[in-house]
């Protein structure tokens, strides 16, 4: 019995908010992540995504930088603003195919928990990465 309880604790479902406007990419990530036991929500609009992220019910936020209505950088800044979102529990992981100048990228990396290039990893590799994000 004890070990069963233990199992339940370990299997706590982690919630992922995927802020992504490329529908097919969202679809691929959804397939891989739900298969791996994550709860997955995808939002394609910047403003809606920010509102959703500010509810603070997610463990991981996958944030694309090029999305309509608000840029990923604006969302990142808003989420890191302690007045608007105090102590956000979610890890913010930038997932983008957009290239930045090194210094701009460094600035984004400083505020986010990780910075990934979508083309450099497959959905499975993303899952492996997220499994190691605590």
């Amino acid at each position: 019995m004890e070990s069963e309880e233990h199992k339940i604790e370990v299997k706590k479902v982690r919630k992922v908010l995927c802020i992504e406007d490329e529908y097919f990419i969202g679809e691929l990530y959804q397939r891989a992540l739900t298969k791996a036991g994550y709860a997955f929500t995808v939002v394609a609009d910047g403003v809606k995504a920010l509102n959703e992220a500010q509810t603070d019910k997610y463990d991981i936020i996958l944030l694309d930088l090029m999305i309509p209505n608000l840029t990923g950088i604006e969302i990142l800044r808003a989420l890191r603003d302690n007045k608007k979102t105090p102590h956000l529990k979610a890890k913010i992981i930038i997932t983008t195919n957009l290239e930045q100048r090194e210094d701009v990228k460094a600035d984004i990396e400083k505020q986010a928990d990780a910075y990934l290039v979508k083309a450099d990893l497959t959905p499975k590799e993303l899952v492996e990465f997220l499994n190691n994000v605590q």
Binding site: E22, F24, I25, L28, R31, A32, N97, V117, K118, A119, T122, P123, K124
Partner: peptide
């Protein structure tokens, strides 16, 4: 270039 590439790699993996 990267966006379709991401998709292709994803589908190949599937």
């Amino acid at each position: 270039l990267r966006t379709p590439l991401t998709l292709l790699r994803g589908y190949i993996e599937v």
